[in-house]
Design a protein around this nucleic acid. Structure first.
Length: 109
DNA sequence: CTCTTGACTGAGG
DNA sequence: GCCTCAGCCAAGA
């Protein structure tokens, strides 16, 4: 198992793909699971390349359940549409019932 | 090498 | 609950 092969970014993509449908998580949760709780920003930064990956970045939001990165998809309500398509209710870029839909990799995995 | 810019978070007021 | 500040780390200029 090549540790170096899997960069921090790659690990972020891996965890993001493990997010179940209709569930969401936060950047900090992923970062913490990777052992870099202080690098939550890097998780979001890593998502910059998520467009070229099969990573469901729309399931990753900030700790408030707010769709901070919705503008990075295409600048429209695409991110919200994707979440609603999975059964997640989103209002004003904010996930409803966020605590119930929250999926913590450190606990679920 | 230095400075700026972030899809963030926690603490303090 | 909202606003502001500081810490965090990586990439680009």
């Amino acid at each position: 198992m090549q540790e170096k092969t899997l960069n921090f970014f790659e690990k972020v993509y891996e965890v993001a793909r493990l997010i179940p449908d209709g569930r969401v998580t936060s950047y900090g949760a992923i970062a913490k699971y990777l052992g870099a709780a202080k690098s939550a920003r890097m998780v979001g930064y890593a998502m910059n390349g998520s467009g070229a990956k099969d990573v469901p970045a729309h399931r990753v939001v900030n700790r408030k359940g707010l769709l901070t990165g919705k503008f990075h998809f295409d600048g429209t309500n695409l991110m919200q549409q994707l979440l609603e398509n999975e059964g997640v209710t989103v209002v004003e870029n904010q996930i409803q019932n966020f605590e119930s839909l929250f999926w913590d990799p450190a606990k679920e995995l």
